[in-house]
Amino acid sequence: MEDVMALMDYMEASGLVARYGIHATRGAYVNSAEEAVGFAGKKAVALKVISEEAMHKTKSGMILLGLSGTEQITEGYQTLSEKAKRLGNYKMLVQEMAGSGIEIIIGGKIDQQFGKLILLGLGGIYVETFRDFATRVCPITERDARQMLYQLRSRAVIAPDEKTERVVTGLLMKASKLFYENDISELDLNPLIIYEGNYEAVDIRVLEDKK
């Protein structure tokens, strides 16, 4: 039996996580610079090229952050469209800029032996330096979620107070349930930005299991 894994459409993925109570940063697909400007209003936005070939957006330069005003957004839109041409199929996503905070990663993947695993780790620029991750088998209990957080060396940075702790463990429980209940082979909430007892899911990647 061969599995076919396909990247779930971004807006679909963001709808899926929303059904499990995880709020993604507000965003929309746009077909023109004008639409992007219209979406932004007075706020700063990010523009992202969504395509199978541009999974690592930052590395491939397929993302622009902190654009505001008609001029910046229009110019950004054109730059990215030019770059994206060689990709064939792609979509342009505009998103509100997230607040600044600590970046964490919540992910799901399948282990050959034990099945679905949920993962929590420190994100951002320190991912590779610290490799600070905790993993459990799905589904997890509240105690598991807490222990995952407390297993991290960066626990005090990620969740300095009880309120933030509850936010993170809550997110873990929701993500674990989502991953466990759906035919998906990979889940990547990276980054999730944690700040002042709240969070935003800035990027969502879901690999569907299409048999």
Partner: peptide, 10 residues
């Protein structure tokens, strides 16, 4: 049989 170490640890 294989299986990642992190999974065993988990």
């Amino acid at each position: 049989m294989a299986g990642s170490h992190e999974a065993y640890e988990a």
